[in-house]
Design a binder for these strands. Structure first.
Lengths: 233, 233
DNA sequence: ATTACTACTAAACGAGTAC
DNA sequence: TGTACTCGTTTAGTAGTAA
């Protein structure tokens, strides 16, 4: 998810906007004295006044000062801000799964089998179709160490994955594979893949990406790597 | 509506809680470094750290500090706070009408007809049933003066009212009446009533209450009075 | 690497007040 | 009554740093 845009400064302004909306200023022009608004905000009259000025400057409200109060209306832009907050909260509150799970572990060298599997056409086509990229021929093996990471890894099982179908060619059968889109070291988009019958235990995750991760992220055996596994609803 | 409880201090804490929820801390224990959280909040590492400590003290999160980050989970109490905010916003955003409209005007003496109508049993029973109080026998006449108040009064027409049915007795017929619950001078609960065929023009509103308003609020002719008309959805 | 303390700085607040 | 300015105070935020 990573809602871009709301930072701590905007947030403070949103508070006053929110209070104004509680008074109906998103529906109609309301007349409020700064003292009255201040009471609602549990702040001083001066603070309310300054906040209104700031909101006006920001274009979130229109404001006309009269001898007995301010005529305030929340603008479309202002309403949009409240609306954004609302829909972000909706997403947070009503989504069954967390937006992502972050795993950390150490890079190690496997047996090179990854390359073989990833390049099988039966899988490769599905990677392109379902993940949206053509994987570099090879996987990055990451060993999970901490209790927290192992727990996270096991929680992942319960979350909806992208499923690659198994297939067979003239020689043998290839099993189904679960994968999740992921961001590696906050930089590279790729995916983690879990073969249903893996030659590794669950303390190992295999990562693929369109690029050669070891080079691109300058990774060597034993280096720490961070994998943000994205969960899509 | 008048959401009680959220003030500017709670709001600031809610921001950090909201950011944690964006990271999934309402669903599971997450491991974040204070530096990482700070980046999400667009603040310094120290600020993030202090906020987490404050949230823990408040009981909104649980927190375990480890050598490589904090294990954070939003508590039920904390989740409840986010939930409250969400439902308040839902109410604000998705309600068709503003929660209330405030009218201000001057008290004046009418012809005393109000008392006559209000005490007719056909109306009185409906007041008790639909407004929940037995009105003092008499109405408070309020003259609207400012352009803003006249405009507000006319907007009111479009909002859903409590309708009293007309009736007839042996002598004559009594027309239907629209009314809205209202709070007078932030103190007394009552209602404004609009006879569909009134002897006043739309710059006058008549107010009823279980108490004798003139005495109870020490009102004299020419005094300003504030009527918060409540709109129920 | 972390967290979180202390000391300092910047920003927000509120009292008083002019208009 | 109102709003909103100045100015002193309080609060929040950051930098540096110890653990």
């Amino acid at each position: 998810m990573n809602t871009v845009g709301i930072n701590v400064e905007l947030w403070k302004q949103l508070f006053t906007l929110y209070k104004l909306a509680e008074l109906g200023a998103h529906k109609r022009v309301i007349k409020v004295s700064t003292a009255f608004l201040a009471e609602k905000m549990k702040a001083s009259q001066q603070t309310a006044s300054r906040h209104l000025i700031a909101l006006e400057r920001k274009g979130w409200i229109t404001r006309r000062v009269t001898p007995d109060g301010c005529l305030i209306k929340i603008t479309d832009t202002g309403f949009e801000e409240l609306s954004k907050l609302h829909s972000n909260l909706l997403l947070i509150m009503e989504t069954k799964y967390p937006p992502s799970i972050t795993l950390e572990g150490e890079v190690f060298s496997g047996l090179g089998e990854g390359a073989y599997y990833v390049t099988r056409d039966g899988y490769r086509k599905q990677f392109i179709e379902k993940l949206g990229f053509d994987p570099y021929p090879g996987t990055l093996n990451v060993k999970l160490v901490t209790e927290y990471d192992l727990k996270s890894r096991s929680e992942l099982e319960a979350y909806p994955a992208i499923e690659l179908e198994g297939f067979r060619n003239e020689n043998r059968t290839y099993g189904p594979v679960k994968c999740y889109p992921a961001v590696i070291n906050n930089k590279v988009k790729g995916a983690v893949i879990f073969a249903l019958r893996s030659h590794y235990d669950s303390s190992v995750v295999e990562v693929i990406a369109p690029k050669f991760l070891r080079n691109h992220l300058k990774l060597k055996d034993g280096n720490k790597v961070k994998i943000e596994v994205l969960i899509n609803p």
